[in-house]
Design a binder for these strands. Structure first.
Lengths: 328, 328
DNA sequence: GGTCTTGACGAAATCGATTTCTTAGACTTC
DNA sequence: GAAGTCTAAGAAATCGATTTCGTCAAGACC
């Protein structure tokens, strides 16, 4: 790796001039040419580390998500990446596993790496965003919120819960249960509220099951529901993967998803494979990502307007007509 | 952010001593205590950028994958991450979209960011690994290989292709077509060879379709196959997502996956949702990741043994018994 | 013609750690 | 007790860019 000094020596100018050329500052035509020629001959690339040390900031944004194997989050990541690329920023993806410890570690890395900003889906209310915020680096919460005063992009979760439940009730199901994520996460709580609001009167004992957000959690919860004295005849899951687990459990129990109502808040991954009878509330995952990235980039650019929370509306997918395009 | 100088001043020692304490070098008990107390009081975290500039290396490894929305690669990423974490390394995930341009950009970033090493699934044979290799940074190719002399972890792709095709032939299908990925990618070519070897005699005109690796590609290819004069009665796809697209096309054409044989090299994502009749060759994605990470970390640690290529064997999944665990 | 601007550009300081010298003292060893 | 190790720890150089501060020359203005 050639350095700015070698380029300067070859071009017969000072290192300062080389730097100026690469940063678009005023330099005469003549010297610009000399510098560019020398740089090309040496295959010079500016050392980002040195630049970062000096400038105290970089063109990297950190994206902290709970589960990289959940298509909802990869779609979100896609959105963030697309938007970041446009502005010449790179995205570092970090998988927190919903573990506050891991999350904190990544936040510290983001701080000590001088990253330009952070987009995260907080694992818990207790995340200490102080390490980042006190450095003056912008943070945007996405999908989930936090008590810290930061910008946020979220989904109208209660409406999504209502929509999912309503679709089942309208289809004639009577005893609608709910498989929710871990208690204490606002997004899932709100969806549960939506469910309760619609299914309220019909809710039996034990109809609300808490599970982790993954396939195995949905499976376990569904199994528990089926073992009840008066089992439900339909279920709403508050995320996509738990619906997969629930379907799995139904199939294993020999129950067809046609007779047992299933609704998911979130799209089943790779829909083509899902039973057509499953109700899905489509979440604008990619949009969530682009919106969050846009807000973050605005802050990075120095935008100082008051804190914003953008709420995106989810959309119920029609039951009958399978979509033509890709599954996400 | 407190610096090493402030800590030194507060502790009444020199900055060098503070550095030594944090790097586990010889320092008296007494001063160690002083330094740690001061550091704690100031909430000091060493500035990674400064350290990296000085040491000319970091504890970050770059992982370049073609498609972050493909569960095969996220599982692989998971493997890399798990292994890296154990050794205190962080992983930066980069999505190349199979675009050599993007790939090169990320490689340059890896170089100018002093990343410790790179694991990649090359988008094409023409990737210029020179930028990384010439810096003496280790590189491991994963899933796909490259003409550059680097360590590699791959799958026995021909065997996988053979296994998938054989399962269909054994099940009684006669006219087995193949939906392959883009020409020129070794992994998919090898799988095609496997298919040809088994299905050879029975291959009709146009039975080999090339597509992109995604759902829409599989869909288009399947549609083309069905439009042939003598359409096949079964198909092998050389990756997971194209199988999803193929199934989609079959459903749309009103053909049940029970009557039309489908085999995929790779696991269908979220299997619980897939028709039980689909043959799947399970690829050890996560293993691929941990193995690659292990090799890379060994090289980073200075291991200088000759280049290695590790070949992992895929495994045909039993048709009938659905797995109990999570889909990946 | 003399003072004032203005602009290009070099010298040197700076960012915050690591690391190489150096030095001073403690400890062996004969 | 003199000469020869060690060891802890400070001073200062170093990594490679950016940026402040000056300098110098060319052009503007009265």
């Amino acid at each position: 790796m050639a350095t700015i000094y070698e380029v300067a020596a070859l071009a017969g100018v000072s290192p300062a001039t080389v730097s100026r050329v690469f940063n678009g500052l005023a330099v005469s035509e003549e010297k610009q040419r000399l510098v560019r020629d020398a740089a090309a001959r040496l295959a010079f690339t500016p050392n980002k580390t040195a630049r970062r040390l000096r400038k105290q900031s970089s063109e990297i944004i950190a994206l902290l998500i709970p589960d990289i194997e959940n298509p909802f989050y990869t779609a979100l990541a896609r959105g963030v990446e697309d938007r970041a690329q446009e502005s010449g920023f790179s995205v570092v993806l970090c998988n927190t596993d919903d573990d506050p410890g891991k999350e904190l570690r990544y936040l510290q890395i983001a701080a000590s790496e001088q990253m330009a900003g952070v987009i995260l889906s907080p694992a818990s209310d207790e995340v200490d965003l102080g390490v980042i915020v006190s450095l003056g680096r912008p943070v945007v919460a996405v999908d989930r919120t936090t008590p810290y005063p930061v910008d946020a992009v979220k989904i109208d979760n209660r409406a999504a819960g209502i929509a999912a439940t309503k679709a089942l009730v309208d289809a004639g199901y009577r005893r609608v249960a709910c498989i929710a994520g871990p208690a204490g996460i606002e997004a899932t709580e709100d969806r549960v509220h939506g469910w309760r609001q619609v299914a309220g009167a019909r809710v039996g004992e034990g109809y609300l099951q808490h599970a982790n957000f993954r396939v195995d959690g949905g499976h376990a919860a569904m199994t528990a529901l089926l073992a009840l004295d008066t089992p439900p005849d339909a279920v709403v899951t508050t995320n996509n993967l738990m619906a997969v687990g629930a379907l799995q459990a139904l199939v294993e129990a020999g129950i067809s998803p046609e007779t047992f109502g299933v609704a998911a808040v979130g799209e089943l991954p790779f829909m083509a494979l899902a039973p057509a009878s499953v109700v899905q509330v489509r979440l604008p995952a990619r949009h969530l990502g682009t919106t969050a990235a846009t807000m973050l980039l605005e802050r990075i650019a120095g935008d100082a307007q008051p804190l914003r929370t953008v709420v995106l509306r989810a959309e119920v997918m029609p039951l009958t007509s399978p979509r033509k395009e890709s599954a996400l």
